[in-house]
Design a protein around this nucleic acid. Structure first.
Lengths: 262, 262
DNA sequence: CGTCAGGTTGATGCCATTCAACTTAGGTGG
DNA sequence: CCACCTAAGTTGAATGGCATCAACCTGACG
């Protein structure tokens, strides 16, 4: 019974049962709980820990001096917050919690030791970094070339597929615990215009969004409206198309980390 | 007399003289020459080599199905073309030469051996990957939040500073061997509008651009117009503020690689 | 019951696109 | 050497996508 984040790490390299156990223990021995609008890491920090999201949503964000700011990435369970920290560098952006979040905050020395002795684990982690980079490139394309409408379609597709990959979907639905304001920040649109695009999407019957729950009646159609090509997510073929009902993994995750709360 | 790309790699970790020699030999034993509009790596490739740019300009680019496409990054001497290849994965985008380019195409087996035995080198390379990721994030912010005018300012600032970091500037000037069409693709603007922004920049006396040569009379002013914060480039303080005249490194690079041409 | 965050709607205007033409410079062949 | 061609850059006018400003609505909550 492997955890979602471990399955996610195995997208590249197979991890031995030993490696897996080690990772799990490491992660669940350093759980930290973070409230909805708190920061996990702040710009300029010299982070002493590597943060791995266990549950909840977070985002990378960066501000201009005059106050304008953007969300640069959404971080979902299984995602690394600060790969930068793997090599000692200051953060060039912040990571903030969008919902209540539980993260594993693994101290650098421990982490270094882990990756040094277990090259497979190191490799798996670097794989995540490369996927993150691929996603960032796709976002660049998104903002540069797609229309507002396509942009929103694309973002919703990506989030849904990424959630499904870690077993956080139920059929054609998933949680979307973010405000429209946040979606606007992520798509480079104003709140007003994002709202209008969303309504067009609803009118076209491409999405149902109510009570923080997103339902995609026809994923194919949404993907085609978004000009979405999932290659950049490097999902495994069959294995990751499973949802929570099949994997039962969301609960497993939450029970575990909750159990460790002080 | 170290090469620019080696100095660049040392932005994080110090490399031993041994490491440096090894790297140089490795690079210059596998030089490949590539013409102006040729591809270095193509989307979907399963690359057998790691490519390092020795001279010339290249770019990452990605297309949508309907033909729209964007430049996602400019690659300058010292940059890695396909960090993705460090772990075995298909390319999710293409890398094309913008000018005549000479690249070191290091075969994977050799490369793996190198990084395995010399952890410092591996670390230095991963550092580059992380800088690339930071640049990509800044581009996301650029496209999402900055106006067309600021966007162009920002791009020119970044290119100038990155070139200066590898000794490819002369005073306040550098080569800018790309067409306006390419700048438009990189900023998410139309060619027409980019041209107009460029003229505004000229009128404001912030840049002089003629014959593929960019001159920035007042870098401070340009940076301020761009809301430019250089932190994300992770430049060293003093060392990398040197230009070609001081370092004499551009010539060194070109002579070497040219000498190896078949 | 007031307050506040989140969401929705309308009117207006500007930034950037689109379409279309024209200029300039470099290169090639007759 | 000029005639022609093409890539690159420049300019004008009209359109439209998205931003801006400003209300107003809704439900949750103390």
């Amino acid at each position: 019974m492997t955890h979602p984040f471990i399955r996610k790490l195995e997208r590249f390299t197979r991890l031995s049962a030993d490696d897996q156990r080690l990772l799990e223990r490491m992660a669940f021995e350093h759980v930290r709980r973070i409230g909805p609008r708190e920061d996990i890491v702040r710009e300029g920090d010299a982070p002493g820990e590597i943060h791995l999201i266990l549950s909840g949503w977070a985002c990378r964000s960066k501000q201009l001096e005059d106050g304008r700011g953007a969300i640069l990435a959404f971080l979902l369970p299984g995602d690394l917050c600060d790969p930068n920290a793997i090599l000692p560098r200051l953060m060039d952006h912040s990571v903030g919690a969008l919902t209540a979040v539980s993260v594993a905050g693994i101290p650098r020395p421990l982490f270094d030791d882990l990756t040094l002795k277990h090259s497979r684990i190191a490799q798996a982690l670097w794989g995540q970094v490369l996927i993150d980079a691929a996603i960032q490139r796709e976002w660049t394309l998104n903002l540069g070339q797609r229309t507002a409408y396509e942009r929103l379609c694309h973002l919703l597709c990506e989030l849904f597929l990424r959630l499904r990959a870690v077993g956080l979907t139920q059929g054609s639905s998933c949680e979307l615990p973010v405000t429209q304001a946040k979606l606007a920040e992520a798509t480079g649109l104003t709140l007003v215009h994002l709202n209008r695009m969303l309504q067009e999407l609803r009118a076209a019957n491409l999405v149902v969004l109510k009570n923080k729950t997103l339902t995609i009646p026809n994923l194919e159609a949404l993907m085609s409206a978004a000009l979405f090509n999932p290659a950049y997510l490097y999902l495994n073929q069959a294995g990751e198309a499973s949802d929570a009902a099949a994997a039962g993994s969301l609960l497993a995750l939450d029970e575990r980390s909750a159990g460790l709360r002080p």
